[in-house]
């Protein structure tokens, strides 16, 4: 038995060496080997050590298809120094079924947001389960807007819209931030001296009230009727021109920053647990605009979600 393992280890070592040192054409051929149906877990795992990025990523992508026997290799893949090896593995972990959850959890702790996003993608592809929902719940609170968005989408398969509460067009206050001091001076605070803030309507561009290039802040005091807190609550923005940061009751809830391309794109920010029902809430939106008109130019609403059947 020992001799078998020794031979296997030797073979693997040679394989790793071969892959690592291969000439370009050999690398391409080696990668093609990894795509063969009968490729072994060992070969794939060994390929993770390739210094060639595409060979290692291909191995990471294919590994989950090998089932539970690939778990060790996948753990290794999730530790790979190449972010895309980790992401390639994470994105395909759903192929392991429930057994993937610990690996996904590991991936959700990755330093790189793309890897965490890939892990959420794997959750999206999985069947609903308590473990899955818990991981999605955690991902919704991720510091990365990219991961948040993916997690919000992931939650869709578990929830459905129960109610939508439109936010008023009027009653908002506005202030430009030419000196970019709003964050430092905490213009998002729940309680703020709003002297000097001007009324503004949403669902229209800020026109002359805001800068063609620069930052403007919106604040809204919103009374919410008392009710049983929903399973999930999301602020649904139909579009804000351009980049957006949202605070609820003084806490940063999320951001939507796609640069100029984001000016017409809808987005949702999860505010579950941040809203106070039966009380006055403070919603603050910071908008950064780079060209032409800006502001909250389309409707905003609070979407209340309930678990899907």
């Amino acid at each position: 038995m020992r001799s078998v393992w020794t031979r296997a280890a030797t073979t693997l070592a040679l394989l790793v060496l071969a892959i690592s040192c291969a000439a370009p054409r050999d690398l391409a051929a080696r990668r093609m080997e990894l795509l063969k149906r009968d490729v072994t877990v060992e070969t794939l795992a060994a390929a993770l050590d390739s210094r060639d990025a595409l060979v290692a990523r291909t191995a990471a992508r294919v590994l989950p298809s090998k089932g539970p026997s690939a778990i060790a290799g996948l753990q290794k893949a999730l530790r790979n120094r190449d972010m895309l090896v980790r992401r390639s593995a994470a994105m395909n972990l759903h192929e392991l079924g429930e057994a993937a959850l610990p690996l996904i959890e590991q991936a959700l702790r990755d330093d790189n947001e793309f890897v965490r996003q890939g892990a959420v993608f794997a959750l999206i592809a999985m069947k609903p389960s308590a473990g899955r929902e818990a991981l999605i719940e955690g991902a919704i609170g991720d510091e990365s807007a990219l991961v948040q968005r993916a997690a919000v989408m992931a939650s869709r398969s578990s929830y459905r819209v129960a109610e939508s509460i439109p936010l008023p067009k009027t009653g908002w206050l506005f202030r430009t931030d030419a000196g970019e001091v709003g964050r430092e001076q905490e213009w998002f605070a729940a309680h703020l001296d709003e002297t000097g803030w001007e009324p503004i309507e949403i669902e229209r561009f800020w026109e002359e009230q805001g800068p063609e290039s620069g930052t403007g802040w919106y604040r809204l005091a919103l009374d919410l009727a008392d009710r049983e807190p929903p399973a999930r609550a999301q602020l649904d923005f139909q579009a804000v021109d351009e980049s957006t940061w949202v605070w609820v009751n003084g806490e940063l809830a999320g951001e939507h920053d796609l640069g100029p391309d984001g000016w017409e794109k809808p987005f949702r920010i999860d505010v579950t647990g941040r809203l106070k029902w039966g009380e006055r809430n403070q919603i603050t939106v910071r908008v950064y605009n780079t060209a032409m008109a800006g502001g909250i130019w389309k409707p905003v609403s609070i979407v209340l979600l309930e678990p899907a059947e």
Binding site: R57, M83, F114
Partner: peptide, 24 residues
């Protein structure tokens, strides 16, 4: 053996072999 060059917005069903991060 085809190589997919994607970005972080690529549809979750596709695993890019190479990811080029978007930028404005």
């Amino acid at each position: 053996g085809g190589i997919v060059v994607g970005d972080e917005n690529t549809c979750p069903a596709i695993t890019p072999d190479i990811l080029v991060e978007t930028h404005s």
